[in-house]
Amino acid sequence: MIPLDEYENELLESVEKGEWVSKGNVDERLKSLQFYIKNQNKKAISIRVNENDIYELKKKALENSIPYQNIIQMLIHQFATNKIKLSV
């Protein structure tokens, strides 16, 4: 299990207590989000990546049942939208 920070633990406890209420019609919202994702403009790129990094990335992707390319897309998006920062 991934360790959670204080904020994430608070959210988890809140969900487990039933404090969250569905907005309803989850299927319709899911279809809407899938349509949005499917119709985003995407650009193919080519990069050279360390073999060991790709191995570890694929391993984590398998653990999470998600294609490794999707993880790369998510990381790029999160960095581009300032949701994650580089630490040097």
Rank of each mutant, 00 (worst) to 15 (best):
L62W: 08
P67E: 13
M74F: 14
Q78V: 02
H77Q: 13
Y55Q: 12
T81L: 04
I2D: 03
E10M: 04
E8M: 00
Y68A: 07
L57W: 02
K83V: 00
Y7H: 04
L62M: 14
N52H: 13
D53V: 15
Y7S: 07
Q69K: 12
D27E: 13
N39L: 10
I72L: 12
I66T: 15
I71D: 01
K31D: 09
E13S: 05
K59V: 15
E16Q: 06
L11T: 02
G18Q: 02
F35I: 15
N82C: 09
S22P: 02
V26C: 07
E19G: 01
N39K: 02
E16T: 01
S87Y: 07
I45F: 01
N50P: 02
Q69V: 13
L62A: 12
N9A: 03
Q40N: 05
L4I: 00
N70T: 12
L33D: 04
I37P: 02
E28Y: 05
K38S: 06
V49E: 04
S32T: 09
N39T: 07
K17F: 01
N25L: 03
L86I: 15
V88G: 09
Y7L: 10
E16I: 01
L12K: 00
I72V: 15
Y7A: 03
E63I: 09
Q78M: 15
N41V: 08
M1A: 08
W20H: 05
E51D: 12
M1Q: 09
F35K: 11
K85F: 03
E28K: 14
N39W: 08
I66E: 07
N41Q: 11
D53C: 11
Q40V: 07
A44M: 12
V26N: 01
N70F: 15
L30A: 08
L75Y: 10
I66V: 12
I47L: 14
Q78K: 15
V21S: 02
N9I: 04
F35W: 08
V15I: 13
A44K: 13
L75R: 06
Q40I: 11
Q78H: 11
L33E: 11
E63G: 10
K23R: 07
Y55L: 12
V26K: 00
K23T: 09
K58G: 05
Q78F: 10
K83W: 13
R29A: 14
D5E: 01
D27Q: 14
S14N: 04
E8W: 02
T81D: 05
Q69R: 10
N25R: 04
E16M: 08
L57Y: 03
I72N: 06
R48H: 14
E28C: 04
S65W: 05
L86C: 07
N52F: 09
